[in-house]
Write a protein that binds this DNA or RNA. Structure first.
Lengths: 222, 222
DNA sequence: ACCTGAACACCGTTCAAGT
DNA sequence: ACCTGAACACCGTTCAAGT
């Protein structure tokens, strides 16, 4: 295994056609990739024509189809890279805060998620908008599962928390965070709104967790 | 004004072409409408071809275009009716529970929302999936605004709660509920999962609200 | 090995003709 | 007044030909 993270396997139909290792073709795929994001953000999922992408990338349509089997695969690739970054940001956060008290851990998780989305908020919005358009389902669910697992692991590492049903609790918290963030993005938020939302969400998750933990039987020394 | 609720004004481009009052054409629009839902659920947004809809409705493509200017308008109409029902369910709940203590009001709101979605969960899922595909943005935001307003009104009617910033609190709660519900639907939930989620969400919102209210200065009698 | 772009196919939309 | 469906237009995709 080369990577520390198993990358989710794309359905065959959505895989890029060539993974170019040599010379100019690497430049070409990068250009196509970048052009896809640009066109997506400028024209939306519906206005994302292959000819526009080719034009913006400075190649012909035919070239696009040498590297990607169809339009969906372009969106898929962009989404994949984007979600991978998101997942890694959250997982990094989980590693760092492992073993801290539950309320700190909760804040860290919420902040990591909201901040990762906010950092590339234009792309976030464009992808949220496009998400119905394609078979991103598998991608989204696998990242969801991965981040849910990280959340469970993180919560159970907290020394001051013990849950009756940690899977469900983590699911509820993470759904509220991920879904709430999506809703916020759909309302064209200013950076301030995002920050306010992040703080409120921290507070909400903390309140829920505080109330939900089965209090430990005193400290270790007792 | 005929209706008690102002129906959100659709952008001209998305309005149906005829609002048929006479005879068979009413039957026809209903058939087209129903066919749209069926095809949407069976084939997804991407597989929703106008010919399929016409076939399923038992008319020709031309007829479809006499009543709807284009495909998007079909989805728009279906979404509109669906969201109108959702909005009314939540607003009805708000009326009923007006003036109750904040925690009851919170539970009622969460339950009304999740239950309304669950009641037509197949349609909910199909529309969530389709939502990127079209200009539903205006529709969704106007319903969001409407339900946010209902939430604010409801929360401020609670006798035992007084918020520093009720708009923000209501926004946070409602985002978590609406967004979390969406996430749950994207994970192909069983009815049990939906119920569990509803309960957890109730508990989460309650915990947040309880912590967030500025406690009143004792009871009235004191 | 990589690129081109005219040609093809599919499907949304129209409109002249029917009842 | 309402419906039909062949024709048109637009765009995703291919493939024979170029370097």
């Amino acid at each position: 295994m080369v990577n520390s993270h198993m990358t989710f396997a794309p359905p065959d139909a959505l895989k890029p056609r060539k993974l170019p290792r040599q010379g100019r073709s690497k430049v070409t795929t990068d250009a196509i990739f970048e052009a896809t994001i640009q066109v997506l953000m400028a024209h939306g999922a519906r206005g994302m024509k292959t000819t526009l992408i080719a034009e913006r990338a400075g190649v012909s349509v035919g070239t696009v189809y040498q590297y990607f089997p169809h339009k969906e695969a372009l969106l898929y690739a962009v989404t994949q890279r984007y979600l991978e970054e998101l997942a890694q940001a959250v997982e990094r956060c989980a590693e760092i805060h492992r073993g801290e008290p539950i309320e700190m851990v909760s804040d860290a998780l919420v902040s990591a998620y909201v901040n990762a989305k906010s950092a590339r908020s234009d792309v976030s919005l464009a992808l949220y908008r496009a998400s119905g358009d394609m078979d991103t389902d598998s991608l989204v669910s696998s990242v969801f599962a991965r981040l849910l697992a990280a959340t469970i692991e993180l919560f159970s590492s907290a020394p001051d928390a013990d849950f009756d049903n940690i899977e469900e609790v983590a699911f509820t918290v993470f759904s509220a965070v991920a879904g709430g963030t999506r809703v916020v993005f759909e309302n064209n938020p200013t950076p301030q709104m995002l920050q306010q939302f992040r703080l409120r969400m921290c507070s909400m998750c903390r309140a829920y967790l505080r109330q939900t933990i089965r209090p430990e039987l005193g400290t270790v020394g007792a």
